[in-house]
Design a protein around this nucleic acid. Structure first.
Lengths: 339, 339
DNA sequence: TTGTATGCGTTATCAC
DNA sequence: GTGATAACGCATACAA
């Protein structure tokens, strides 16, 4: 690899001059500039970004922590693609780290990105508690944004959707359509998102004077298979339901398959609604409606906020970026089979 | 940020000793080691990986070039997730760069990763020609792997699927099932993959003595919408077909919607088959079969090969990694609605 | 077993 | 305008 030193020698100048030509900072004679450019051309010189990052103390990278097995799907695919694109547009590079299967590993992933001297970090947490995330945000000088969690203290450092409200709203819509027997498939236990969606379901029922029937609630594990199993269990219990709310689209898909196999006509006999893990779900899956959060907007706001801070935006100043950010969800009906 | 120097001072030793403790290389007294570890603990020291990379001339990163708008989907999502996971398992970090919308930008992305001193690079090309890729592979000392393209000279540096054969095989299966009027939706013009799948279709027809009817071939743009439009065009032409092959699952999905809307019974009146861009497609889309390439295996082999080279594997030696790698595709029928 | 010195390839601060 | 020279934080060959 040819270095700046060699370019300097070839051009008959010093490293400093070469550096000035490349950065465009500082004065440099047009004659010298010409020779330097030619030397660069001839030698095929390429700057070593690692050295530059070390010298400038800026890596121009944004780190992102996501559990790898989780973002295997179009939800995170969309998130990643937008994040990477926006980062590049601002001259930054996106760095990925796997949160893996525990809080310890999630901590490790963050530490790793920090060791790499990322200028900022985005976390889509799975195991870390809001309290610990609050502490992490405060104990580092790098800007850190947390997705899908509501932080107590650093409200301006998190972006989340109100799963409770969205779920309640969806269930209310079903009730408005005349449904009273509404079954519910929850997400994996331990997931805050699952808890919120379930509580929204219960609240909506309560508000309309409908009793919550434990027999109509089944637990799934976010997967299509578990959604199918949940329906099998509901059918085995012989409880009636004219509508079914699954806590994500994956489970809704499995549920629909199982209902169909059981000879139940969709959406005539049972209406099914899911949540946003598969943006294209309402389009490809018959009889499915879905509550979708604008993932795109969410990640865009997040990256924008980070860039704003990195570029010296005064964080405590009065600004559009200083408030908290809550993304609203809404029910989407696909064009394939209307709900 | 506390540096190694500060840790050394606190422990009453030199930087070198601290370095030895951290790396585990070289001798170090147990007394000194103890003091160093304590000093690290107390100061909350974290190594600067940038500095380490510069000093060791090894970044421990693998760069990956993909067109961002292209990998917005579960196909690339799966690829990325596995790549990132495998890289981490081998102590490496995955670095993403966007190939964007032209050959020049694809070249730029590669150069950027090289400037970052990636130890190796994976390219899923969109615009660069096999010939230029061949040259890129040869003109760099870093191991470079090319996905989904067949290189003339560096056969051991590429992994690809035989789209022609897979397409021919799928069409042959349809013919074996009794179909003779088979329509075809090609991918976007300019895509080598699209060309190969079309030629496979033509060959299969020819082998069974069926004439290729240009009226039964329509061009799409890989999107569901374009698939729907293609079907509309076919119907407008009033050509009969009992089977439809779409060059990817996205278009197949749109096609199915359009056929359904036109009152055509699926799969009774028309059988639809697509190709692998949506791994879950046969599961969620009714009446769809799909030709799937094992993306997971593909990327795993690729990363393994790279790691093998990085870890000093003799590239010209007799080894499982030295031959070329062709991934076989096969027709998959989803459990949702049998084909 | 430990410390010293030098190198990695830049940037940035000075004098000149 | 330009050129030494000192950081940047760590690794490592060599000396002690």
């Amino acid at each position: 690899m040819t270095t700046m030193q060699e370019v300097a020698k070839r051009a008959g100048v010093s490293k400093a001059t070469v550096s000035r030509v490349l950065s465009g900072k500082g004065y440099v004679g047009s004659a010298a500039r010409e020779r330097v450019l030619q030397a660069i051309e001839e030698s095929g010189y390429r700057p070593n970004l690692l050295a530059r990052q070390l010298a400038t103390q800026q890596s121009q990278t944004i780190g992102m922590v996501i559990t790898n097995t989780l973002y295997n799907g179009s939800y995170f695919s969309e998130m990643l693609s937008h994040a990477a694109q926006m980062a590049e547009n601002c001259g930054r590079q996106l760095l990925l780290a796997d949160g893996k299967h525990s809080a310890a590993q999630e901590r490790e992933a963050i530490a790793f990105l920090l060791d790499l001297r990322c200028d900022a970090i985005v976390i889509y947490p799975r195991f870390l508690t809001p309290d610990e995330l609050d502490e992490i945000v405060m104990s580092h000088r790098q800007p850190i944004m947390v997705l899908n969690r509501r932080l107590r203290h650093n409200v301006s450092h998190c972006v989340y959707t109100d799963h409770h409200a969205a779920s309640a709203s969806a269930v209310s819509q079903l009730i408005a359509l005349g449904h009273r027997d509404i079954a519910f498939i929850t997400g994996a236990s331990g997931s805050p998102t699952a808890v919120e969606r379930l509580s929204g379901y219960k609240e909506a029922l309560g508000q309309h004077g409908i009793a919550v029937d434990p027999a109509r609630i089944v637990e799934g594990r976010w997967t299509p298979d578990s959604g199918a199993q949940a329906v099998a269990l509901l059918l085995a219990r012989k409880v009636a339901f004219s509508a079914l709310v699954a806590s994500n689209d994956n489970m809704a898909t499995g549920a629909i398959k199982q209902l169909h196999d059981a000879g139940i006509r969709l959406p005539r006999q049972v209406s099914v609604i899911g949540f946003d893990d598969i943006p294209t779900a309402p389009f490809t899956v018959p009889s499915l409606s879905s509550v979708k959060a604008p993932v795109t907007e969410m990640i865009k706001e997040t990256i924008n906020k980070l860039i704003f801070m990195l570029d010296g935006g005064d964080f405590s100043a009065r600004s559009a970026f200083c408030g908290q950010l809550i993304v609203r969800e809404s029910v989407t009906t696909g064009p394939f089979y209307p709900f």
